[in-house]
């Protein structure tokens, strides 16, 4: 059986908020390393991979591998009943048809108990190879979100170029064009506010802004985001949490 307790409900609430517009139904795979999820969007253009590691739980017990088939819209409805500061306990049997969620406030005088019906989901899993990326950019997640939103008002696509000059996001649309260039600028006092660029080779790729704007819904998970790029392969965007991560992969647009 599974029993997993989070000190703060906000962790799972933020993860679900971050991915629910990308995927609808997905398996939460529970095993002795924690709770993991991998799911593609319907068009097979984007993929989300999530891992909440056991270290992030106040209590974690999972005797055997359990797949919790969850509709994320339904899960979000139940999670609305949890206050951010509530302790959350997830429980499921070995072959569950429901997930039990218990929310307790810090004063220990309110216990909310919910059951969420589970589904059988036959999900395709992709093998994602270890990749040495040509360029890796670490920057404030809020700034990346702002750039994606601003450029998405002008165009459907963004060209991302990483050179030794910096990283340039540019787009061209019906009303005009726009570009934002970030130069390496490490912040010694507050590393989460700095921008660092590791460049192995120049990279130039084009991506759909609709997906990037969607990924930025994970900005609440981390002050920083890491963008990894190589020519002609999917980009990787990672939001690292204290004990886990949410990663997004996006296939590039080529030759248009």
């Amino acid at each position: 059986m599974l029993e997993a307790r989070l000190e703060q409900s906000s962790v799972l609430k933020k993860v679900v908020d971050a991915i629910k517009d990308l995927v609808q139904d997905c398996n939460f795979d529970c095993n002795d390393s924690g709770i993991q999820l991998q799911a593609m969007d319907n068009s097979h253009v984007a993929l989300v991979a999530m891992h909440l590691k056991t270290e992030g739980f106040a209590l974690y017990r999972c005797d055997r591998n359990i797949a919790l088939g969850i509709n994320l819209v339904s899960l979000q409805k139940v999670l609305r009943a949890a206050q951010n500061e509530d302790v959350m306990t997830l429980k499921a049997e070995d072959s569950p048809d429901a997930l039990s969620l218990v929310f307790e406030n810090s004063e220990n005088d309110r216990i909310s108990e919910y059951d969420l019906k589970l589904m059988d989901i036959d999900q395709e899993h992709l093998g994602i190879p270890e990749t040495e990326y040509g360029a890796t950019v670490k920057m404030p997640s809020a700034e990346f979100q702002r750039i994606c939103r601003d450029l998405s008002l002008l165009s459907e696509s963004v060209a991302i170029e990483a050179t030794k000059e910096g990283i340039k996001f540019s787009c061209t649309g019906d009303i005009g064009k726009g570009a934002v260039t970030l130069r390496q600028n490490p912040n010694v006092e507050k590393p989460e506010l700095g921008t660092t660029i590791e460049l192995q080779e120049p990279v130039a790729l084009t991506f759909s802004l609709k997906y990037l704007v969607n990924f930025c819904k994970a900005s609440g998970l981390s002050n920083t985001v890491t963008i990894s790029l190589s020519n002609e392969v999917p980009l990787l965007i990672e939001y690292e949490m204290e004990h886990g991560y949410v990663r997004f992969y996006l296939a590039p647009k080529i030759g248009d």
């Binding site: 593609m40 068009s43 097979h44 253009v45 395709e124 093998g127 759909s208 248009d256």
Partner: peptide, 14 residues
Amino acid sequence: PSGQKTLLSFFGLK
């Protein structure tokens, strides 16, 4: 959309 690749052309199914 034109030129939009899918992940299936890069990553294999497990």
